[in-house]
Amino acid sequence: MRDSVVRETVLGSEMDALLLRSLQSYVIDTFGPDRWQAVCRRAELAVSTFEPMLHYDLGTADRIAQVAAEVLGRPVDAIWEDVGIHLVTHPDREGIRRLLRFGGVSFADFLHSLEELPGRARLALPDLDVPEVTLDELGEDRFELRCQSPLRATQRVLIGLLLAMADDYGALCVISAEAGDCTSIAVLDRGHAKGRRFDLAVPEG
């Protein structure tokens, strides 16, 4: 497996780059830089910093996450869910929460806006290959989300994002991974908590 040393490539995957950077931030912020160094050593990486704006070989993120699971002693799915939560809740990454909140004024609006996610991502990063997302409304407050991605991480990160955003909107819901790429969402209480404030414009200064 020596050939699988991580390379930055021109034609590689941007999604892997974003996932790797998110994983790196989550591990460093939550477990400290030493544990991240341990992950990098065990994965035989030449570097210990992933650049979100560069490209990496397709599948690198899933491979490094597997190593992180071994080092941290946690299932890889749980790690990716936590990465999704971390992306939205960490104060340093307020920007991502804000971009997601532009999806709508209620959690249901937000869920529907997920179908626009690839288009929204392309507005910012024209060559980003975000997997298509479809949302089916099964009944009042019951949804099924499908996201076909070659990366294992995608579904779990999405679940983490949904959990954190439900909290942000003050909605109480049950989110679970179903067979295939399907995620089911049941909103139990739309106004469970107050939710966080969202101003359309960032205050000046």
């Binding site: 704006m53 709508g104 929204r120 507005l123 910012a124």
Partner: peptide
């Protein structure tokens, strides 16, 4: 910013949300 407008102040067809979103996304990039 100055008028503290919200989503509800714009017609559903208005591209204001998209423009605000894009300005922030570009700033982040």
């Amino acid at each position: 910013r100055e008028l503290a407008l919200t989503d509800a102040d714009f017609a559903a067809t208005d591209l204001a949300m998209e423009l605000l979103y894009m300005a922030e996304a570009n700033a982040a990039v």
